[in-house]
């Protein structure tokens, strides 16, 4: 019995990414058979070579846009998808490869590749939402399998998915973690990072690395000032802290820029 949209067709697309998020779907071992029964996997090259023609009810999009060809391809994907869901830090913020946005791609290209003229690439790695309208973003590097299953569940039932946008701190307190920032003096990005991981790193005595990207109202400037003044984190480390999986998410990008040496930060 499904209350939502029947047995939807689902396509899974890959852009510039490591495939980790797609694999999250495959690693939902407990639910996979049940999922396969309720949805029709119409296009998922990672899992099957069988391809059904679009249009598709749901497209899950992994990866960022880094080439002119992909910038074109994502428009096609959008045009044949009723609901488009981006999955993971690459698709939602440009991913780790968006570190290039802070450097000079021309220089990389000429230094790294023997025949740079064969490499057709854009200067920036950008999120899918910068190219086409996105219906829902699932954050994380990689995404949480349980969140993906929850979204599929919600679509099938025709209800709103439980994917909160508040801070990781809320999850910390819900599960009863001790705050590693306050009690251990460990720098933690949790207060400015979106929930979804169930505060995994603090549960293992690590500070949050921000892999779910900025929370709904991220005051990264205040957190960085506190880390600088009270935890004595220096500017290069603040740059590194905010410049990882979600380096190009606006709130984190602004913050890492703020702590760059002045001659670079123009």
């Amino acid at each position: 019995m499904t209350l939502g949209i029947g047995r939807p067709t689902v396509a899974v697309w890959k852009f510039a990414s490591c495939d980790g998020c797609q694999l999250s779907l495959l690693s939902a071992e407990d639910e996979l058979l049940a999922i396969a029964g309720e949805i029709e996997i119409a296009y998922f090259l990672e899992a099957t070579r069988e391809v059904k023609e679009g249009p598709y009810d749901i497209s899950l999009v992994e990866g960022s846009i880094t080439t002119p060809a992909d910038a074109e391809r994502i428009r096609e994907v959008r045009s044949i998808s009723t609901t488009l869901i981006t999955i993971g830090a690459c698709a939602t913020a440009g991913g780790i490869q968006a570190l290039r946005n802070f450097g000079d791609v021309e220089t990389f290209r000429s230094l790294v590749y023997a025949r740079p003229e064969y490499v057709d690439t854009l200067a920036d790695s950008t999120a899918i939402a910068e190219h086409v309208p996105v219906d829902l973003e699932l954050r994380g590097c990689p995404i949480e399998t349980s969140q993906l299953v929850e979204v599929i569940n919600a679509i099938l039932a025709g209800r709103k998915p439980v994917t909160p946008t508040h801070s990781v701190c809320v999850e910390c307190k819900l599960r009863g973690n001790l705050c590693v920032a306050v009690a251990h003096g460990t720098p933690c990005l949790g207060p400015v990072t979106q929930a979804g991981c169930n505060a995994r790193c603090p549960a293992f005595d690590r500070g949050c690395y921000g892999c779910f990207g900025p929370a709904e109202s991220p005051n990264s400037a205040s957190l960085a000032t506190w880390l600088e003044e009270e935890f004595e984190v220096d500017h290069p480390d603040l740059v590194r802290l905010f410049r990882s999986f979600n380096a190009d998410a606006p709130a984190f990008r602004r913050e890492s820029r703020r702590h760059e040496p002045e001659e670079v930060a123009t």
């Binding site: 639910e31 049940a34 309720e38 299953v149 929850e150 569940n153 099938l156 809320v170 991220p218």
Partner: peptide, 27 residues
């Protein structure tokens, strides 16, 4: 303020809640 909510969650008197609905795949 980071709007992180820690103050309200550690406060021994704050009582605010929300509800979350879940369903299974089979409906």
């Amino acid at each position: 303020c980071l709007a992180c909510a820690n103050c309200t969650l550690v406060c021994p008197t704050c009582f605010c809640t929300t509800v979350e609905d879940r369903t299974d795949l089979a409906g």
